[in-house]
Design a protein around this nucleic acid. Sequence first.
DNA 1: ACTATCAGTTAGTTATCACTTACCGTTAGT
DNA 2: ACTAACGGTAAGTGATAACTAACTGATAGT
Lengths: 103, 103
Amino acid sequence: MTYGNALAALADPTRRKVFERLARGPSAVGELAHGLPVSRPAVSQHLKVLKDAGLVSETQDGTRRIYRIDPHGLGELRRWMDQFWDQALDNFKAEAERKDKRK
Amino acid sequence: MTYGNALAALADPTRRKVFERLARGPSAVGELAHGLPVSRPAVSQHLKVLKDAGLVSETQDGTRRIYRIDPHGLGELRRWMDQFWDQALDNFKAEAERKDKRK
DNA sequence: ACTATCAGTTAGTTATCACTTACCGTTAGT
DNA sequence: ACTAACGGTAAGTGATAACTAACTGATAGT
């Protein structure tokens, strides 16, 4: 049920901005906070949520913490979505065929 | 920014259950409520959110409303995710090469 | 050792959201 | 027309979540 956490994490607009920013390359917390309309602690809290969801990872560099995208969470989300994508398409096809038979 | 609505819609566990149930085939509101630990009005409200996010569509059949998955919302989500998937992989590759050069 | 920088944590506040109960509208059958 | 079935809407409530301000911890430089 990790994809649930990933979805919840990416549901928040501010958190999504952090994530999209990290998709363009690793960054430190202060850098992320700069350019966002929220305080640095808020960014820290968002990063914790993203990290717990397996969407980002963290490395230390002196006093700075560098965050980067972690493919794990994104991959699980993708797999979950693909499964439903296929299922939905199958149902659409099946329904269309049923409609054909009725006429 | 419709993928934002789709993410927010799928972030809720109950709403996700409704969606996953519909992925297995169309269903009426009462049927959906039956089998879920929430009231029928709650399901109605969830369906409204899913519909506004472009994730489900609705057709009328007598007094019943049949809900089914709408590929639009899911497709947009998929495109958004694929974009970040590619971007994240590119960054990982670029970073790995940078690491190689350093040694 | 002292100071500055960077960032995670805590406590408290506000707004949002999921839920229920009660109500209203619409369609179909008798 | 009356009634039953189905479902959307409104109002109210409790819980959760995002945010800020204040504090604490750790690392690096002088």
